[in-house]
């Protein structure tokens, strides 16, 4: 038996009751903050190396900077992860994989755009084979540098944790729209949405 806020009482259907109860509880501050606390220390980035910033990502997971102390544990399968660190340039080919991986991840999920390339093209901004990461997936944290030092990556993770604790929702999904027509290559939308 359970009671809803709208004054309706439910009898018998345990499933509906429990679902209602869960959604009710989730809205309560104390439960929500507990969930956030859990999310905060289990930011598992998927192992998706997109470019050369990956070396600093590897160094950051290494012993000197040890991001595992922040609950940051690179993991293989996208289904078990909730964070993508886009490590630099995304090419047309890689953009598809990034989008697919992002779609495979369960919500809530966050994205850190690491490096100047992921922010807006960086040193390769005028290449005919690159796509800015912000046109592929919604981005929560932009992290500048080329490559950013591992400390900077740690800072980005801490900032993401803060925003989780403050109960900010992950960035909303973007419409993968047509990029400005480029001579030669097909538009990004076709490359990405495939």
């Amino acid at each position: 038996m359970g009671g809803g806020a709208d004054g309706v009482a439910y009898f018998g259907n345990l499933e509906t009751v429990s679902k209602k109860a869960v959604s009710f509880l989730k809205k309560q501050g104390y439960v929500k903050s507990m969930i956030n606390w859990g999310d905060k220390f289990s930011l598992w980035p998927v192992h998706l190396m997109t470019s050369c910033c990956g070396t600093e990502f590897a160094a950051a997971s290494g012993p000197r900077f040890d991001l595992e102390r922040l609950g940051f544990l690179p993991f293989g399968g996208p289904r078990q992860t909730n964070l993508i660190v886009i490590e630099g340039t995304t090419t047309l080919k890689m953009a598809r994989s990034v989008r697919i991986v992002w779609e495979q991840m369960p919500a809530p999920k966050w994205v850190i755009a690491m490096g100047a390339c992921a922010m807006d093209g960086g040193i390769f901004y005028d290449s005919y084979n690159t796509v800015p990461a912000k046109d592929i997936v919604p981005i929560d944290i932009f992290l500048a540098g080329c490559p950013p030092r591992p400390e900077a990556l740690a800072r980005a993770v801490v900032m993401l944790q803060e925003s989780i604790v403050k109960n900010r929702p992950p960035a909303a999904d973007i419409q993968v729209t047509a990029a400005p027509a480029t001579p030669g290559p097909k538009d990004v939308v076709e490359a990405v949405s495939k």
Partner: peptide, 14 residues
Amino acid sequence: IGFVHRTTEKLSEN
């Protein structure tokens, strides 16, 4: 391959 092909040759020529 080519997932990280960033066209360095073309860029450097410009």
